[in-house]
Design a protein around this nucleic acid. Sequence first.
DNA 1: CTCCCGATAT
DNA 2: ATATCAGGAG
Length: 215
Amino acid sequence: MASKSEIVHAKKIFSILKKEYPSVKPALNYTNAFELLIATILSAQCTDARVNIVGESLFKKYRTPEDFFKVTNEELEKDIRSTGFYHQKAKSIKECSKILVEKYSGQVPADFDALTNLPGVGRKTASVVAGNAFGIPAIAVDTHVKRLSNILGFIHSDNPEKIEMKLKELLPEGDWINSSHYLAAHGRKVCIARRPHCLQCVLADECPSFNPESK
DNA sequence: CTCCCGATAT
DNA sequence: ATATCAGGAG
């Protein structure tokens, strides 16, 4: 599916990003798989910085799935309100916690399909947890990965699953987990959605969307 | 496809 | 005022 030249192009770009962001890591703060799962659910349409602020106090109050399951929806909504979409997120977190307790003895399943079957968990959240908590090869396609994949010419599509599959064709399995971190880091710092800094971009020579009048 | 919805940058 | 932020469910 992916041509030789596409693979060479992608390899060059990720080689540059790897040098640019040597200590790449998940932008969300967490100390275990369960916290990462909850934090990633909260991160939908919300900055990682905001989730980290909410998470700091949240994970002092709620340490296990049982803690989330016991609390009322109203109280949980109040505790996560500033991440937005709080009604749906609180509902997802409570239902999700219930299933973790009843079906997985309180543990987060280390399996992609089991994760996507949890309420409030789609491919992106499942990929983040599978990859970062359990080391299972996966590519999390968030808004940055989606935007940069199109800007850099890996694909022309808004469909997250198609983008995920294309990136998996372009990259060796061992690079899958970090690839989304590189694209997200670059998307936050340089290739910003509102205002891309093309003149400061290390990928300028490789980028089909390079704009010399960018800034 | 639409709806969910707060915080921040521009 | 408007766009955007590590999306997912109905």
